[in-house]
């Protein structure tokens, strides 16, 4: 039962990544693309944590932590660049 629920969750995350990729491809403005990348980062962070559970390795959570930190810094630098030119 629990494994089936986790597989349904993986399928939902799959479709979330797919929709965000579609928005990245056909987004009209730059802000649309940046927010698509931000959303994709957090979704992939959840995916990495879920994969850490599936494979049973504790080390993968560290990757999720580094992943979130770096993407946050990138989005903040981009927003600051857009607002006042770095």
């Amino acid at each position: 039962m629990a494994e089936i629920l986790i597989q349904i969750a993986a399928v939902l995350i799959f479709f979330a990544i797919l929709f965000a990729i579609i928005r990245l491809v056909l987004g009209k403005t730059l802000v649309d693309r940046i927010v698509a990348v931000d959303t994709l980062t957090v979704i992939s962070l959840s995916l990495i944590a879920l994969y850490a559970h599936v494979s049973g390795r504790f080390v993968y959570i560290d990757v999720a932590l580094v992943y979130g930190l770096l993407s946050f810094l990138a989005v903040l630098a981009l927003a600051r660049f857009l607002e006042r030119g770095l």
Binding site: V37, V63, A74
Partner: peptide, 20 residues
Amino acid sequence: VSSGLASLFAAVSFLLLAAP
């Protein structure tokens, strides 16, 4: 932005191939 996303997904694929 797109090239940064490409490297982020490359990181995910490295992780799925068991190289954290």
